Amino acid sequence: MLEEVNRNAYELDISEFVTSHAILLHTKKASTYYANSDVEVVNATLHDVVNGELSLGNEISPHALVKLITAGKERSYSTTDWIPPNILVDSANILMWYQPTMLRHLYLKNSSDVNQQTLHVKFPATLFVFERNTRHLKMFGLDSDKRPTLDSILYQLPIGNISRSGNLCLGNTLDLIPDTPNAQNCHLIERCFFDALSTHTNTEYLFLKDEEDKKRTLFTQIVSYWARKAKRRHRVNVKKDLIPLLSIRTLMRG
């Protein structure tokens, strides 16, 4: 004969809990940088609850907030918690990282060419910004291989399939993006450009001289530029050749 189950044994006894603190999230209307969201969380404040009422609160950092919530939990470590040194931002929506100058393959094809060109070039240091909500990828040039700061200037990369705002035209490369992009696999997202074929320009000017002369950059110039770099094994002179756009700080403000 089955023993009758005491359902009361599974009920949560709220009398054991005391509401001692409250966390308030302070928001503003979202900028375009945080697309697909009506509001952007600006900060959080922690308040004592006294006699059922909120007291004045103090601002609390995201790191302190996580520590507060996980206080008393069993300590555990995982290699997935390790943050590589090239990761700059890993938030709910934004994953931002950089790569120093390195040898890369570029696949280029003019509309008038029968075959594509594969060039092995010294590609400049690059900042990558991936938006998880929209699955958009931005790419910008950097003038140093050192870890960027908020005041580092971002440059227009002289490549095809990229807009003035740094947005890469992903085309059919979306399948190359991991299902759950994170700090450990973000380098795989870079394949959306470096494993893809560049065929056209998405903005009017891609070189500083062209912008100064108000002369639209043609895709044939892009191909010639990288072919020369590949033949001579020269690095890109970022400050001389490329168009400065904005700082990382400005980018993050939206």
Rank of each mutant, 00 (worst) to 15 (best):
P244C: 03
N58V: 12
A196Q: 04
M102Y: 00
L188P: 01
R216P: 10
E212G: 12
E4G: 14
F17D: 09
S78T: 02
Y205N: 03
N93D: 13
G160T: 01
L208V: 06
H234V: 01
E204H: 15
G171T: 02
L197N: 05
N43C: 12
D113E: 15
Y98L: 14
P178W: 14
T199K: 02
K231S: 13
T79V: 07
L56R: 11
N115R: 14
I248G: 01
M139L: 14
L206V: 04
H26A: 08
R232P: 01
Y205F: 11
S144F: 11
E4K: 10
N202M: 07
I23A: 09
R249D: 14
D48K: 08
L168C: 14
S78K: 00
K138V: 10
V39Y: 06
L56H: 06
D38K: 06
H234K: 07
L56M: 05
F123C: 09
E204F: 09
V114K: 07
T201L: 07
D13I: 00
E211V: 10
H234Y: 01
L218C: 13
T126Q: 03
L176Q: 09
N237D: 15
P100H: 06
W97M: 14
E211C: 11
C169A: 05
H63N: 08
H136A: 13
A22T: 03
I94H: 11
P244G: 07
S37Q: 06
H136W: 07
Q221V: 03
H21W: 07
D38R: 11
A64Y: 00
A230D: 11
N93Q: 10
E131V: 02
S76W: 05
E4T: 15
E4R: 11
P85I: 08
H26R: 04
D175S: 13
